[in-house]
Amino acid sequence: KAKLLVLLYAFVATDADTICIGYHANNSTDTVDTILEKNVAVTHSVNLLEDSHNGKLCKLKGIAPLQLGKCNITGWLLGNPECDSLLPARSWSYIVETPNSENGACYPGDLIDYEELREQLSSVSSLERFEIFPKESSWPNHTFNGVTVSCSHRGKSSFYRNLLWLTKKGDSYPKLTNSYVNNKGKEVLVLWGVHHPSSSDEQQSLYSNGNAYVSVASSNYNRRFTPEIAARPKVRDQHGRMNYYWTLLEPGDTIIFEATGNLIAPWYAFALSRGFESGIITSNASMHECNTKCQTPQGAINSNLPFQNIHPVTIGECPKYVRSTKLRMVTGLRNIPSIQYRGLFGAIAGFIEGGWTGMIDGWYGYHHQNEQGSGYAADQKSTQNAINGITNKVNSVIEKMNTQFTAVGKEFNNLEKRMENLNKKVDDGFLDIWTYNAELLVLLENERTLDFHDLNVKNLYEKVKSQLKNNAKEIGNGCFEFYHKCDNECMESVRNGTYDYPKYSEESKLNR
């Protein structure tokens, strides 16, 4: 008799109507990190870190770059004969040098303040090359056809396309004075040089004057150069050297050249137009028929994500570079809930034993079982409120962090190594801060989002509990077992918050 009662009780308990509160689960393989956990499985997430590029040089917003090819900045601007293909260059979106560009200054020497000139050019998007001192009329008392084997072109001695090597005419090199007034309405880049012979005999042979000088002056520039005559090792078949100089001439300003020898005179100059998204990159990537809004030396990035880990040097509207390998923000729920887990921000989770793959029309909802059958029903209101809140948060985070910009490298010469090392340390410090901030932001927001979901499920549970009161009992896994019969209409009233407690209280009292 006792065995019969136990079996009867078990049958009745199993047959009781139930309603459970749960949440969506799926077959997603997404994982995120939080402050407290690593690799948390979630139903949905968004990636904030771009880690792919196309490996190509592309047009930037429809404008092609200027590819210097086998030449570098120095060779292009001075007019190395091997860089003749660059003479027609007028406009570009950015400038590309190759790491091993070999054609710079063909006659050995240095372009002074080269690093600063590169910085200036990094904001130039177009130029006009014009004859600042016409070759045939500007130097009537001097020979202007100086050439050298060091600047050979097609097997013949030649010289820079933008400079003139002035030497004596006959047996004399009379003092020369020439000036140019900038009437271009924009900055003009003027380049010139000073020749330093290897011996007094060479000085006399070329310029006749043993104590020659070169003077260059404008409103913002004033220097006097004296040739340094000295024996030097042979470089590119030359014992002599040429140093090259430049200045930016403001609109309306005048530049005056005065010399008694050794002047490498300007022939062509450049009127410059600035462009905020221009820059110089060093890259071996090849040019393709493609378009982008962000270019790196590795390749083009076409992404609206706020961060990238491809390269710190970028041109155009680019994500911020960070050292992170993963920045994924959760938008959905835990896919593998932890039992009795309390989140960092106070939300209680884990009283549900598992997510439901059968509930596909919402994030949170119900599963019921009664004599009429069983089924899932999503709670659309709480789901939609959660979707709206999380979507707004993700968009806000992306908008705040998605300050796209150009980031170019800084140039230092060989004598500025300590400054370069200090600059690298400062840049590394800023990069570490950006990386830390980005990672911390994602970790915190992921923790908040998961706790937010847990709290929403808990609130749904409490909503049902407050309606049923003692007409049902909690069975410990997020479910309630009714003390009365609850048909589909009754189940719907529980879900929509209109459950009639008094209607079922007498039946429940008897069954309790």
Rank of each mutant, 00 (worst) to 15 (best):
T167P: 00
E82C: 06
K135A: 12
I264M: 13
S93I: 04
P134Y: 10
E102C: 00
W92T: 02
Y244N: 03
T148P: 01
E258G: 10
F130Y: 15
V214P: 01
N209Y: 10
S208Y: 11
G79S: 05
T177P: 00
F144L: 03
G275F: 07
V12P: 06
W267V: 12
F276V: 13
N47V: 04
S45F: 13
L7Q: 11
A13V: 05
Y245H: 15
W165I: 03
K70S: 12
G170N: 15
S200G: 11
N54H: 04
Y245G: 10
L78P: 14
G170M: 12
L164W: 05
E228K: 02
T14G: 02
I112C: 04
Q204H: 00
L249W: 03
N39G: 12
E97K: 03
W76S: 07
E82K: 04
L111E: 00
L5F: 14
N262T: 01
C151Q: 09
A10E: 02
N26E: 02
S208K: 05
F130H: 06
T247K: 07
K61W: 05
S93M: 04
S278F: 05
T29V: 00
S208T: 13
L8C: 13
T74I: 15
L127G: 06
T226K: 11
H53M: 13
W139A: 04
N209F: 09
L87G: 09
E277R: 12
Q203F: 03
Y23T: 15
L68R: 14
S45Y: 01
K156G: 13
V194A: 11
L111D: 02
V235E: 08
V181N: 12
W139T: 04
R232Q: 06
T98E: 14
T254A: 12
D33S: 02
K184F: 15
K59A: 12
L111Q: 01
S28R: 03
V12H: 10
D237F: 07
K1M: 11
N26C: 04
W76Y: 09
P251Y: 00
D253W: 02
T74G: 08
I63R: 15
L272K: 00
G55S: 08
G240S: 09
K184D: 00
P81Y: 04
W267I: 09
S205E: 15
T226E: 13
K38R: 15
K61L: 03
A269Q: 04
V235S: 13
S45N: 12
P81T: 08
N183R: 07
P227T: 11
M242H: 02
L191V: 15
D33Q: 05
S208W: 00
P65K: 07
G193E: 03
S101V: 14
Y23D: 05
N26H: 09
G185P: 04
A10M: 09
G22H: 07
L7G: 09
V96N: 05
S152Y: 00
Q204A: 15
E37I: 08
L206A: 03
Q67C: 01
Q204L: 10
Q67M: 15
I21M: 05
V42L: 00
